[in-house]
């Protein structure tokens, strides 16, 4: 039982990281109805950006956010116009294979450019340990969690209170109706995609000090993100938060009690059970109207 405070602390931090990766995915799906299989590769690119900034210019990844945010907007727009927009009105099959193709391209571009070697961004102070209520956490973990939480809260408020945020939620509910109401849905789709890209860009900068970076690192997190967003209900920000916490707790607390060898089976079983019992996920039952609430 003495392990419990540490397990909980680790799970909450991991949950915060999963949430940030998942929220981007869930927003893109909620608004655009596209499952972005290249989401993990966006994360990978951001982690490489963090490594590159730190190695070449000594820029701390938290300062590097100032570079990552505009970079992600430019990159996101480019991908949106070149790859995504032409298939927005197409079948699921076409959309899935377009984003899968994109994922193959980005993953191998990274392999081509930066080799398959593993890299770790090592902050001089990042590994320093803080003890809170019997749980040891590192500075990098605390910053990652706090930033993720603040970012999520801001996003949440933006979706709730701004015109664009409301327009996004309206579009998620019913794209045709939103168009009839005079919402420029084309623009809203772009914004949703950019917000999704932005989320992983931030996540990547925060994660680079915590996890090794390599060309297939995105896969490691995107599969978890899929579980999270479906658990929470595709399109629901609150659902993604809750789903992320559930998966993280299974990972850490479940891993402790049933063994790490079987923990994935545990969360995939929970995943399938939830989905079959509540097909729209925990928070998706009333469709996408719950986006942002």
């Amino acid at each position: 039982m003495e392990a419990l405070p540490q397990l909980i602390a680790s799970a909450i931090i991991l949950g915060g990281i999963y949430a940030l990766v998942s929220i981007g995915l869930t927003l893109v799906f909620g608004v655009m109805r596209i499952v972005n299989f290249a989401h993990g590769e966006f994360l990978m690119l951001s982690m490489y950006l963090a490594i590159g900034l730190f190695a070449t210019a000594g820029i701390d990844p938290y300062v590097g956010l100032l570079v990552a945010v505009p970079a992600s907007l430019v990159f996101g727009s480019l991908i949106y116009y070149v790859v995504i927009r032409p298939v927005v009105a197409r079948s699921h099959a076409v959309q899935i294979f377009t984003t899968l193709g994109l994922s193959i391209v980005l993953q191998n571009a990274a392999l081509f450019l930066w080799t398959g070697n593993f890299r770790q961004l090592r902050l001089p102070y990042g590994g320093n340990v803080i003890t809170i209520a019997g749980a040891a956490v590192t500075v990098a973990q605390v910053i990652a969690f706090a930033t993720a939480a603040a970012f999520t809260a801001a996003l949440f408020a933006w979706l709730r209170f701004t015109y664009l945020g409301k327009a996004m939620r309206a579009t998620a509910q019913d794209r045709n109706a939103a168009t009839l109401m005079g919402i420029d849905t084309g623009r809203v789709l772009l914004v949703a995609f950019l917000v999704g890209t932005l989320c992983v860009a931030v996540a990547g900068m925060l994660m680079a000090p915590l996890f090794a970076t390599y060309p297939t690192v995105g896969l490691q997190f995107v599969l978890i993100a899929f579980v999270v967003v479906v658990l929470g209900g595709l399109g629901s920000v609150v659902g993604a938060l809750l789903g992320a916490m559930i998966v993280a707790f299974i990972d850490v607390v479940g891993g402790f009690y049933v063994g790490t060898a079987w923990k994935e089976v545990l969360y995939f079983v929970v995943f399938m059970a939830v989905l079959l019992a509540r097909p729209a996920g925990l928070f998706g039952q009333r469709g996408a109207e719950h986006l942002g609430t």
Binding site: Q6, A11, I224, D251, F256, K263
Partner: peptide, 8 residues
């Protein structure tokens, strides 16, 4: 490929 936390 799915090991994101060694705490347990």
């Amino acid at each position: 490929n799915t090991m994101t936390d060694f705490t347990p």
